[in-house]
């Protein structure tokens, strides 16, 4: 019975994480002129210049933030989507099925995205 209290709390926590990491994304990718952080775009120039992409790819910090952002965004989005679907008053069995499908989709996407982040990190390191 306490499940929704737990899920809601994690939903809020994921929202805060997204807010922080998307803020960081904006700073790194779009506000590089206004807020020049040399360490995040070490080659200078535009953030999507190849040298900058490779430099960030070599960073374990960025790899971890990609994985954390992926996990937070997936949980936040899929839990919200689940709530929207539940407001359509599905039958009890359908609710369980929806929860299971979303859980499996979320896990699959998280594993795939994590693999991609780690693979990108390994590739950049090898350059």
């Amino acid at each position: 019975m306490m499940r929704d209290q737990k899920l809601w709390t994690w939903h809020l926590a994921a929202g805060v994480v997204i807010l922080f990491l998307l803020g960081m994304h904006m700073t790194v990718m779009h506000l590089n002129v206004t807020v020049p952080l040399k360490g995040l775009n070490p080659a200078g120039g535009h953030p999507i210049d190849w040298a900058n992409v490779v430099a960030r790819g070599k960073s374990a910090f960025f790899m971890v933030t990609y994985v954390v952002l992926l996990g937070a965004a997936l949980f936040h989005g899929l839990y919200g989507f689940r709530n929207i679907l539940f407001e359509l008053n599905p039958a009890s069995w359908l609710k369980k099925a929806v929860s299971m499908v979303l859980l499996l989709c979320g896990l699959a996407l998280f594993v795939y995205g994590t693999w991609a982040a780690i693979a990108g990190f390994s590739l950049a390191k090898a350059m």
């Binding site: 019975m1 306490m2 499940r3 929704d4 209290q5 809601w8 539940f86």
Partner: peptide, 13 residues
Amino acid sequence: RKRVLAGEAGPWR
């Protein structure tokens, strides 16, 4: 009260 409120009938909706 938490036994009811913390479930799906609670304030989350």
